[in-house]
């Protein structure tokens, strides 16, 4: 690497420095917009005792779900963990610690971490199990709870295109949690479908500026669809 060139050429290099016990933030919604090859690299690497922060934990055989096979995940912070039998089994048996977090709160926890905000008040979750043990406050007649932001030792992100400086463009609903995840990692690794030269992306169209990005790698994506629903062709 030199100057602002963030491009790395191997997955080993992309995930170097990830160690047992670290906190990993991952972009994606279901299997849409997930950094699938970076996840596979973590599986191959065999890193253990990870705290993983992501909206979902993949399915039994795809996405973050594959890290459960060898019990690499100690704790999962997510909003929705259905559609994954192995996850359910490990959660019910107590092998896996789970912190269910409302989806908007989860997005905000990442966004806040990236913006240097340690905690924020939200009405979401007030009076529910999510509020247990958290400070609450009444502001202008409404009740709010204090939620802390989440910083990751690593963030893994899937974008559509990057330039070599790490400026990112996402595609359709594959954007989801990825831009917030990108800001919340001490080291942010991005996997993309195409890498272009600086200047080729319209600066007005960049979703995530390269300042948040440490490493970029070009990947081949399987893009598994969870619920293929169609209408008949006319």
């Amino acid at each position: 690497m030199s100057g602002f060139n963030k491009v790395v050429n191997s997955y080993e290099e992309a995930m170097s420095g990830l160690e047992d016990g670290m906190t990993l933030i991952a972009g994606g919604f279901g299997l849409c917009g997930i950094p699938e090859n970076l996840i596979k690299e973590i599986k191959n690497k065999g890193t253990k005792n990870l705290t993983v922060v992501s909206n979902n934990c993949g399915t039994t055989n795809h996405g973050l779900g594959i890290l459960l096979h060898d019990k690499q995940v100690k704790k999962m912070v997510a909003s929705y963990v259905g559609e994954n039998e192995e996850f359910e089994r490990q959660m019910m048996s107590g092998e896996l610690e789970v912190e269910l977090t409302p989806q908007g709160t989860l997005a905000e926890k990442m966004r806040a971490a990236g913006a240097g905000i340690p905690a924020f008040f939200t009405a979401t979750g007030y009076g529910t199990p999510v509020a247990e043990g958290k400070e609450s406050r009444e502001i202008n007649g409404r009740h709010y709870i204090l939620e802390e932001s989440i910083k990751g030792d690593f963030a893994i992100v899937k974008a559509w295109k990057a330039d070599t400086y790490g400026n990112l463009v996402f595609r359709k609903t594959a954007r989801n949690f990825n831009p917030m995840a990108a800001t919340a990692g001490k080291i942010t690794v991005v996997e993309v479908e195409e890498i272009v030269q600086p200047g080729e992306l319209d600066p007005d169209h960049i979703h995530t500026p390269g300042i948040y990005v440490d490493r970029v790698i070009l990947g081949n994506f399987e893009k598994v669809i969870e619920q293929r629903t169609t209408r008949p062709s006319a």
Partner: peptide, 13 residues
């Protein structure tokens, strides 16, 4: 136990 997804945000907001 599947999680609240966005439901807590929706009802609060």
């Amino acid at each position: 136990i599947k999680g609240m997804g966005g439901a807590m945000d929706l009802v609060a907001g």
